[in-house]
């Protein structure tokens, strides 16, 4: 049996018919063809699938599409401004070498934005602790941590 879902993704109203078991990440990737959001595990550990649901970071592999119905979703594709200007967190990742292969990156950036929102002027230890749910195999986290610390300071300083 298929169920109707309606939600806003990156500011655009979308709808679709899904099975009850369809995950939000499957709806985003397979139905909406927004392939920036990645799947890196099957146990809710890696965070590659992180998106924002009503402004909060959520692992989209751990939420059903039907649960997201009526909600506001932001994926990595919707983060930069329409004119291509990067979000301060994206810009900081570029500046601090926060990515190598890029696979964990969309999730890292989305969680990074959430960290900056909750922790203005976040320090290194806060960021490391907050990244508990996101795994990167390439960078040793160094550039990621630096990027989020930097972006959080800049955003708190109103430069964003």
């Amino acid at each position: 049996m298929l169920i109707n879902v309606n939600m806003t993704i990156n500011g655009k109203a979308v709808s679709g018919q899904v099975e009850a078991r369809t995950l939000l990440v499957e709806f985003i990737r397979d139905h909406q063809k927004l392939t920036g959001t990645h799947v890196g595990c099957d146990t809710t550990q890696c965070g590659c699938c992180t998106v924002h649901v009503d402004g909060k970071a959520v692992k989209s592999c751990t939420m059903l599409a039907v649960q997201a119905s009526g909600k506001e979703i932001l994926t990595i594709e919707g983060l930069a401004k329409a004119d291509g200007t990067l979000h301060p967190v994206q810009e900081a990742f570029r500046e601090h070498h926060g990515l190598q292969c890029g696979f964990c990156t969309p999730g890292m950036v989305m969680v990074g934005v959430d960290i900056c929102r909750r922790h203005p002027n976040a320090d290194e230890q806060t960021v490391r602790h907050e990244l508990e749910g996101n795994i990167c195999r390439c960078t040793g986290y160094q550039g990621i941590v630096e990027a989020i610390v930097d972006a959080s300071a800049k955003m708190a300083g109103g430069q964003a």
């Binding site: 990737r29 927004l34 990595i76 990067l86 570029r94 990515l99 890029g102 696979f103």
Partner: peptide, 16 residues
């Protein structure tokens, strides 16, 4: 890096 903007905006092209 040149590759970063693409990868940071969800425009990477992975096998899946």
């Amino acid at each position: 890096r040149k590759e970063d903007v693409r990868l940071l905006t969800g425009k990477g092209s992975y096998t899946d």
